[in-house]
């Protein structure tokens, strides 16, 4: 990640604060939106969360270290998503299973597999979902995920193992 003009935090030197934010948004907007989308399960909520993340980045631009910028964004995105999930009404989320052909396995199209996987992700707890998003989707190591989530590496591994077992149970009914 190349962030020019950095001394300590994300110093912008001759650049305005807004210009630095624009540059950072261009670099990281996909990462933030994708993570929020997987965490929250729908586009509108993900867009709101991504906006909040970048506004927080704008406010804390001075204190964000260059090397930790990506971790900071992951951590902030996950925290913003936790807040959004907490605000969400408990009964408002309907866990509707995607309509699939009765016989499973090789007959499933990629889009159907993806729908099943997303439905399976929605059945996980927020903590399990965060670990799956960071480790299995974003490809972060357990250590990096632990750093972003503010938990121990052992906790990450434990959540990941449990989450994958539950996902396999869910999608296995259709994929096999």
């Amino acid at each position: 990640m190349a962030l020019a003009g950095i001394t300590g935090g994300l110093a912008w030197g001759s650049e305005s604060k807004e210009a630095v934010l624009e540059r950072l948004m261009t670099l990281h907007e996909r990462l933030v939106l994708r993570t929020a989308w997987r965490m929250l399960g729908n586009r509108e909520d993900a867009q709101d969360a991504a906006q909040e993340v970048f506004l927080r980045l704008y406010r804390h631009l001075r204190s964000v270290e260059e090397q930790a910028a990506q971790s900071w964004l992951y951590r902030t995105t996950i925290n913003v998503c936790y807040d959004a999930l907490r605000r969400r009404p408990k009964t408002g989320e309907l866990l509707v299973e995607p309509s699939l052909p009765s016989e499973a396995a090789s007959g499933l199209e990629e889009s159907q597999k993806r729908s099943l996987l997303e439905a399976g992700l929605r059945r996980l707890t927020p903590q399990e979902r965060a670990v799956v998003v960071l480790c299995s989707i974003e490809g972060r190591s357990s250590a990096k995920a632990a750093e972003a989530l503010g938990v121990s590496e052992g906790t990450v591994r434990s959540h990941l193992s449990l989450a994958r077992t539950r996902l396999k149970e869910y999608v296995g009914r259709f994929w096999k």
Binding site: L21, M25, E29, V32, L33, R34, Q47, R114, I137
Partner: peptide
């Protein structure tokens, strides 16, 4: 399948909406 979700293209309109909102 999980790794493939990472490569899924995000709609440009969603990204533009985020930028505009910010």
């Amino acid at each position: 399948a999980l790794a493939a979700l990472r490569d899924e293209a995000l709609p440009e309109s969603a990204l533009a909406s985020v930028r505009a909102g910010v």
